[in-house]
């Protein structure tokens, strides 16, 4: 199980390097998904299956897929088809695929050898334990997170509205173009 931890950790580091070195957002996002799945594997290896599953469902599953959709839909047009064909070249998907394959191999190898249990010491953290902590003594943290999201939402909605206030004056517009 220890080797699983190190392999997944390595994959996470490599995939994150891929994120910040990719020039195209879609490539970066592919790497980011692999990186998040690798982090989830790290959680599994550490004996925190709940955190691992959350990582996959919330980050890799929901948020990242949303990101990919938005980025792909941003510039639909006649060029989009040619661009999508370009995305299917092996040079682009080979890197993330290799990293994902390593993760799969780690997972299969761990399953093959049966479940040796977490090597890192400490009891298994269950969903129940997380829930009772969060909504018991840590209730204030949940509320604060809610306010954090609210503040982020207000900021985003304020900054996101275009053209509702006055027109940008011609001098600054010229500067920008």
């Amino acid at each position: 199980m220890e080797i699983a931890f190190y392999l997944s950790g390595g994959v996470a580091v490599l995939a994150t390097l891929g994120v910040i070195t990719s020039l195209h957002p879609v490539h970066a996002l592919l790497y980011l998904i692999v990186s998040l799945i690798a982090v989830a594997m790290v959680f599994f290896a550490l004996g925190a299956p709940f955190a691992g599953v959350l990582e996959i469902i919330v980050y890799a599953g929901a948020i990242m897929v949303l990101f990919v959709f938005v980025v792909m839909m941003l510039n639909p047009g006649p060029l989009a088809k040619a661009r999508e064909r370009a995305w299917l070249r092996p040079r682009i998907w080979l890197g993330p695929s290799v990293l994902a394959a390593v993760l799969l191999a780690v997972l299969l190898a761990t399953l093959w050898r049966g479940d040796p249990g977490p090597v890192v010491e400490g009891e298994m953290l269950t969903a129940r334990a997380v829930g009772t902590t969060l909504f018991g003594p840590w209730l204030i943290v949940v509320e604060l997170s809610a306010f954090l999201l609210l503040a982020a939402l207000v900021t985003a909605s304020h900054l996101g509205q275009a053209g509702s206030s006055r027109e940008p004056d011609p001098t600054t517009a010229r500067e920008e173009s």
């Binding site: 503040a151 900021t155 900054l159």
Partner: peptide
């Protein structure tokens, strides 16, 4: 929570 609204 202190910094996030400050960006806005």
């Amino acid at each position: 929570l202190l910094s996030m609204p400050l960006y806005g």
